[in-house]
Design a binder for these strands. Structure first.
Lengths: 347, 347
DNA sequence: CATCGGCATGTTCACGTAAACATGCTTCGC
DNA sequence: GCGAAGCATGTTTACGTGAACATGCCGATG
């Protein structure tokens, strides 16, 4: 069962990863000097530094992150709390968070929450305090955070992404309202009398804000506000909504709260033989990669998940490194991408 | 700048998180007994255990993971190396890894690789040794790992997901070959003379294996093997491939190596007025959520990313906890999901 | 020329935990 | 009734690092 005791040619004690002390011995300096080199302090003589670096190289020394964290109280690690089976957008956000964090010298620990219930969120939060994290980014869009009997460890820096602005924490999010307004106005500008909306699920902040902004835009222009069709972000729910609107026959312009639901709408319209954009125009939200290859290519609101992630990390790191009250909320702008799925209202 | 010194009612020294020693004092036991309770040892008297638990509760004690890791040499943490902007499938896999790891008592650290180049991968690997991980799951489909001048820290347990079986490490992957065979045979069974293939990018193992299996299936039945159209997984590349095949006009059955490319193919066929499945049948691979809402709904090969993640974690944990040679490779089966995009060959 | 200040480097120690070993009590068998 | 064995619990120590403080040297300044 024991492995063959492969002998290494180095002076370090066998079968143990080299520590600062080993490097110190090898370089003929004190451990503290190794520490200074390892942490990049400037007050080390060049000649000494090189000798230490050479010793590190030779022994293959790597700082022990556990010891470092224990001693310094800093983990250089950010926790990300998000839902399992998350949406396309959250994944993109996660991705950009990971990259931005790496650039800032932090690693990312994923803290999955299986189902969007109070209980599960509470568990994730309480687990947090035994996690080795310096701060947390929360990507949970639902209202679950509000009523939270849930207690986040006090003093832990937190940034909330894609959610309400009502928290005590800084919030980084796409400018949902602007995006929904752009989409709605685009359709009105093309001569549509009004715009029908397929919303995301109740309880989702992004869904709510897109909905409200759509409604406000219509009201500001004195248009009729048609009844909302509620979806759940899935293409399937968009399909059902599309069938409903097609059967009704009144809508000439549909603004779906995300691209996936828009995809379902397109399918429903095709099935019912409704021409897009000839008879009905469709606009989505997200600009997911595939939406340019829908049939027809989808007009949609582009949001920069990259920027959301980047700002989220930046604000959190500020909070971690400069004390708890320096971070601020950020609203990331959107952009309308016009493609073939939207056009003039039918005559 | 300093926070108001909120006084807590506890006996613990203010403004410091409580340690084992604090709990020990509170409960009137030694630190070691607290440790035993905290790590779930059985050799503690029930009465004592309860007293310790009560003290923990009262002080809000949480074990310090850094100290624990330093002392025990175990981090209870798994690193996941994957590409930035990864595919839909990798995200799903990551998700299931996170859940499975949490269930096994491990957390997940994301180690993003920005671009799929040797250099970047090397950097990620070398960073690894200063990461606090007990093992690594690698989700990198390209050939990059082979020629690796790259050195993974020796002795670090590794499991490779979605890649070649040629490694020295255990590999967990979807049975790509079976899936491609199912898709191809399905089309042949519907009377199509042969099947055209839009492959994933060169250098991707999954792409290669789907391609090879498609070819072998055709050859086994003595069918003509049409030239391969190479895509890059994106819907856009599928669209271009679709235009090409539509212009050519020969294909009656197309097997796209993933659903996104299939989406692009559908768009191209619609644009060219080619009936699906009347004139051309299309089959995808992945069974992504939205594919049931394509127009028409897509026949595709379902793969269980959940199982891939689950097995990956299981094998890795085995390797970590039972020594380095107990894990083995796993092939996760697929299933053909028949929808409206495929049908009989045109007369 | 004496003192002081700056700088490279060394020494000591504590961070919070858990393994190893030590202690003392209870119970059981002969 | 006495030693052994088992078990709950306590004591000591080391894990690897970096902060705080100490030392010793060199050049500058009055």
């Amino acid at each position: 069962m024991t492995l063959p005791d492969t002998e290494v040619g180095s002076a370090a004690s066998r079968r143990r990863v080299p520590s600062m002390a080993d490097v110190a011995r090898e370089a003929g300096v004190s451990g503290q000097t190794v520490s200074r080199v390892s942490t990049g302090r400037t007050n080390v003589d060049d000649e000494t530094r090189n000798r230490v670096l050479a010793a590190m190289q030779k022994l293959g020394y790597r700082p022990n992150s556990a010891a470092r964290a224990l001693r310094s109280g800093q983990f250089k690690n950010i926790g990300v709390i998000m839902f399992t089976l998350s949406s396309f957008g959250n994944m993109r956000t996660l991705d950009s968070i990971a990259v931005a964090a790496a650039a800032a010298g932090y690693s990312i620990t994923l803290i999955p929450v299986q189902r969007p219930t109070q209980g599960e969120v509470s568990i994730a939060f309480s687990r947090l305090s035994e996690q080795a994290v310096d701060g947390v980014i929360i990507i949970i869009e639902a209202h679950l955070l509000d009523e939270a009997d849930v207690e986040l460890p006090v003093g832990l820096p937190v940034v909330v992404v894609d959610s309400s602005a009502r928290y005590q924490y800084p919030v980084v999010d796409t400018d949902q309202a602007e995006g929904a307004r752009l989409a709605t106005e685009h359709l009105l500008d093309h001569g549509h009398a009004t715009v029908w909306h397929i919303s995301g699920p109740r309880g989702s902040y992004s869904a709510e804000r897109r909905l409200e902004s759509w409604r406000e835009t219509l009201e500001a222009k004195g248009r009729v506000v048609p009844p909302v069709v509620v979806g759940d972000w899935s293409a399937e729910s968009g399909y059902r909504a599309g069938l409903q609107l097609a059967a009704d026959g009144e809508a000439t312009a549909i603004f779906a709260a995300n691209d996936e639901m828009a995809l379902g709408v397109l399918r429903a319209l095709h099935e019912r033989g409704v021409a897009v954009p000839g008879r009905v125009s469709v606009v989505g939200f997200d600009d997911m990669q595939a939406s340019s290859s829908f049939w027809p290519p989808l007009t949609t609101v582009h949001q920069s998940f990259e920027d959301v992630g980047k700002h989220g990390v930046r604000e959190l790191v500020k909070e971690i490194e400069e004390g708890s009250h320096t971070a601020s909320s950020v609203l990331v702008p959107t952009r309308l991408v016009v493609r073939a799925s939207s056009g003039p209202a039918p005559a």
